[in-house]
């Protein structure tokens, strides 16, 4: 019974992902993505990782996706943007990437199928995770906190509204942002 639940949620996750990445409307795509994330959360739960499942919902489907929503709202792409996206969606564009991905998938499946028969199912509680996090992985936690802080500062800096009207300022910004550009 639970095994069937796993396959169902897997299928949901997969299809939701495919839909999310093939929509032309960003908002619709985002809804599909959230569905996919929720499905993955279910899988986590089934696997015996309830803490991970909760985090998946709270942080991924909650916080991160809300960021996307904000940005899409700010950009206000409108109808013509959607139309453009739709025009780009013809086979000539996606057949190549799809082929490459298929090859990669086949390779991975071949590799995975040669693995020994390992079964999941051990329940790992939040307590165990917490002990692990603040025991042997405490350094990783610190680094993660640094990373988040850097992300915060970076997002603030990058998201600032540069005054593009003044040419001097723009050149300064360009030289600051596009150091890699040019030959």
């Amino acid at each position: 019974m639970e095994l069937v639940l796993f396959y169902i949620s897997s299928a949901v996750a997969l299809f939701a992902t495919v839909f999310a990445l093939t929509r032309s409307n960003a908002a619709h795509a985002l809804i599909y993505l959230i569905v996919s994330l929720l499905a993955v959360a279910v899988i986590f739960f089934l696997l015996g990782a309830p803490f991970a499942a909760a985090l998946e919902i709270v942080i991924y489907a909650g916080a991160i996706m809300v960021l996307f929503v904000f940005v899409i709202m700010m950009l206000n792409l409108g109808e013509e943007g959607e139309e453009r996206e739709r025009q780009r969606m013809h086979p000539a564009v996606w057949i190549g990437p799809a082929l490459l991905s298929a090859i990669l998938l086949v390779e991975m499946i071949i590799v995975l199928s040669k693995m020994s028969d390992q079964q999941t199912g051990a329940l790992i509680t939040a307590k165990q995770v917490g002990i692990s996090l603040f025991g042997p992985y405490v350094l990783a936690v610190e680094i993660a906190s640094m990373l988040l802080l850097a992300g915060l500062v970076g997002a603030y800096h990058v998201g600032r509204r540069f005054r593009l009207s003044e040419p001097d300022d723009q050149s300064a910004v360009v030289s600051g942002d596009d150091k890699q550009g040019g030959d």
Binding site: L3, F6, I43, L46, Q119, T120, L123
Partner: peptide, 10 residues
């Protein structure tokens, strides 16, 4: 307990 699923499948 968690469900017993073949790891390969996941």
């Amino acid at each position: 307990e968690g469900v017993v699923i073949p790891l390969n499948h996941v």
